[in-house]
């Protein structure tokens, strides 16, 4: 009902308050407007603003030279001066160029860890390896003293081990084997192939492995046999080497 009433009211012509179309235009008097006064910022404050970095929109910052740039610049200057000097204006300068080239190549190979010996058909060299913990250094042991101590205590198993290490040390000292802690006894036997030392060393190795790894029980009489074998080996080794 209300909606119908509203529709009816909106449909009525609004003629009571509207001006007639032919009425003259009203001209308003000019407003007495004063001339505007421009406010200028204080010169000092403006200058301060201009000095601030945030208001310097277009001026690029000058490139700062670091100490590293300066070093390279000085170095290049020095090298240029070196080669431009009259003393190097001869054939000898190419030698200097070559030396610099070789040094650069060497550094490159070191950085890339390349081994060019393979190209020449050579076997890769054995390098010293980093070990977590070196259990035994045969070059730092006093075998005579340790053996005497073990024998005195009737610790024949330990004595056999020390005696075998002494044999390895003796072979290494005479450059018959290349001692490396990661090598097994079998590796050393292979290194002694076609030498008179292989057979006696194989006997020593067998004795050591049965006693040390195999935990073979030893009596004093049996140890004497092993001791004699070892002494004979070391004696022959010393004699032939001399």
């Amino acid at each position: 009902m209300v909606l119908v009433l509203l529709l009816f009211l909106t449909a009525l012509p609004l003629t009571s308050t509207a001006a007639p179309d032919d009425a003259p235009a009203v001209t308003l008097p000019a407003y007495p407007r004063p001339a505007p006064t421009l406010r200028q910022p204080a010169p000092g404050r403006l200058a301060r603003f201009r000095e601030q970095r945030a208001f310097q929109y277009v001026q690029p910052e000058p490139k700062r030279t670091t100490a590293w740039d300066l070093f390279w610049w000085r170095l290049m200057q020095w090298i240029r001066a070196l080669f431009d000097s009259k003393g190097y204006q001869n054939q000898g300068r190419y030698v200097v160029y070559g030396l610099f080239g070789l040094a650069f190549l060497y550094l490159l190979l070191r950085v890339l860890q390349l081994d060019l010996t393979v190209v020449l058909g050579r076997k890769a060299r054995t390098v010293a390896l980093p070990y977590d913990a070196l259990l035994e250094d045969i070059h730092g042991l006093n075998f005579v003293e340790l053996l005497a101590e073990a024998e005195a205590q009737a610790n024949y198993r330990l004595a056999v081990r020390l005696g075998y290490l002494q044999s390895l040390h003796a072979l290494s000292e005479r450059h018959l084997i290349d001692w490396q802690p990661d090598k097994t006894n079998h590796h050393y036997l292979l290194e002694l192939t076609n030498t008179p030392w292989q057979a006696p060393f194989a006997d020593l190795t067998r004795q050591f492995e049965y006693v040390w790894y195999g935990e073979q029980p030893l009596t004093a009489r049996l140890y004497e046999q092993l001791r004699a074998t070892r002494q004979e080996f070391l004696g022959t080794l010393t004699q032939r080497a001399a």
């Binding site: 390896l129 980093p130 070990y131 977590d132 913990a133 070196l134 259990l135 035994e136 081990r161 075998y164 290490l165 802690p181 990661d182 090598k183 097994t184 006894n185 050591f208 040390w212």
Partner: peptide, 9 residues
């Protein structure tokens, strides 16, 4: 790895 470990003897 094997080369980095000392053989016990």
């Amino acid at each position: 790895i094997v080369q980095q470990i000392e053989v016990p003897r």
